[in-house]
Design a protein around this nucleic acid. Structure first.
Lengths: 191, 191
DNA sequence: GGGTAAAATGAATAAATATTCATTAATTTT
DNA sequence: AAAATTAATGAATATTTATTCATTTTACCC
């Protein structure tokens, strides 16, 4: 009957939005610039997204889903504890390091006026497998019997901070540093 | 000769700006709203600050200075290592927990288009005493011989993350959790 | 290949918001 | 207490930027 929407367009808009937010900051993101970056007209944005708010929230969910997937890549819930722990730690690290734009966007979203409670809680539940792993570690007496959130903060926090310092404070991030960081993470939580 | 500027006004504007940024996000901060919050006219803002950019950058430096001071409160550079380490850790934690607005502002600034390189490097040097402490710990073989930035990430990261999870994920932060967090921090870095 | 329906365009409009400036108020000096 | 000088005001202006919509282009069907 008529032409159909370009399937790849939404993805292209997402990519463009991410790039612009990274360059200009959350506040400096202009719809017109996103459109230019995606090589489409400003008006076309509004065919795919209701408004700026909708664009940002859907991008957030999109990225969060990808991030959560990557966190769990290569992880088998039935593997022994320590290898599972190590796998996830390195996945989180890799994700943070190799996709700093995505990480930055996700972090910023939390502080932005665009944040919606429903979206936040949805993204929280994506980390369930990690909570499960921690529970198992405690049950097997391999890690300290500490509240999951506290353990999680101990694991995720240094990774984020390390990558941030690396990208901002221009110090090289050698394999040796990464191994040290993992060793510290493990020393921190092990029983 | 003529009336003089109100000494407290700059501070009042800082306070108002912080509040507005926290409520509305970095992007939603309007000069008019800041003025209203500070109980002055919009135009008055421009007597004290060149423009929005100037206001934000000066507020950043102001807060960063306060934060760095608080980090080192009660810390004596000539005390034995572990007590010094503990003192600073708890100061960082307290500062994060009790002044989340300030912390949030400082974090957001890094991702904002307002960031100026000069300002960033100035703020970096404020943490020098902490780097010195880490050097001493390594010299005394008390902590792992790891690059300072990696150690710092390990120490600061979990604190920020923990406070963030606490404020967002509404789980209670008991003394017991805080002690656990410190214990993990120490286990992580100790030789 | 002509008809048609939806997609895409981008200039025009509407809103939002930073900044200015003519005016008023307050304080100090003489 | 009048003059002088600067602070403060806030409505008006300038600017920026989200959103709309009349028009054009494209893809699909007969």
């Amino acid at each position: 009957m008529a032409r159909s929407k370009d399937e790849n367009k939404e993805e292209a808009i997402f990519r463009a939005t991410l790039k612009v937010v990274l360059e200009r900051g959350f506040s400096g993101m202009k719809m017109s610039e996103v459109a230019r970056e995606a090589s489409i007209a400003t008006g076309t944005l509004y065919l795919y997204f209701q408004d700026k708010d909708d664009l940002i929230n859907r991008l957030y969910l999109h990225l969060k889903k990808i991030q959560a997937q990557r966190y769990l890549e290569g992880y088998a819930a039935d593997a022994p504890f320590l290898p599972g722990f190590r796998t996830i730690w390195f996945q989180v690290f890799r994700q943070s390091l190799h996709n700093p734009e995505e990480s930055a966007f996700l972090e910023q979203y939390y502080r932005s006026p665009f944040l919606r409670e429903e979206v936040r809680s949805a993204s929280r539940s994506m980390l369930q497998p990690i909570y499960d792993l921690l529970d198992r570690g405690k049950a097997e007496l391999l890690i300290k019997p500490i509240h999951n959130e506290v353990l999680l903060a101990q694991l995720i926090g240094p990774i984020h901070e390390l990558v941030r310092l690396h990208r901002e404070g221009d110090f090289p991030l050698l394999d040796e540093h990464i191994e040290s960081a993992f060793q510290m993470a493990w020393d921190a939580v092990k029983a």
